[in-house]
């Protein structure tokens, strides 16, 4: 089984869904058995989500959408 350091090395790949199925299972097995690592992963995931939700509040101004729409072929 992976130890805490090895699991931490895979933190972002895990959160980014970039691990293989086998690696994913290894990390999950550790997290199931290790509450401190689980807390840590949850916190890191929340930070990433927070960045995403903050930035996604912005949308293109209607005037820009209109300008680009006019660039489309008639």
């Amino acid at each position: 089984m992976l130890d805490c350091d090895e699991v931490m090395e895979r933190l972002y790949q895990f959160l980014d869904r970039e691990l293989s199925e086998a690696e994913l299972a290894e990390v999950r097995a550790h997290l199931d058995a290790c509450p401190p690592c689980r807390d840590r992963f949850t916190f890191e995931q929340n930070v990433l989500r927070r960045v995403g939700t903050c930035c996604r509040q912005l949308s293109a101004p209607p005037s820009l959408v209109e300008k680009v729409r006019r660039m489309c072929d008639q």
């Binding site: 949308s59 293109a60 101004p61 820009l64 680009v68």
Partner: peptide, 10 residues
């Protein structure tokens, strides 16, 4: 392409 304008703008 136009449907991605919000993502490109932000």
């Amino acid at each position: 392409a136009l449907s991605h304008i919000d993502a490109l703008y932000r």
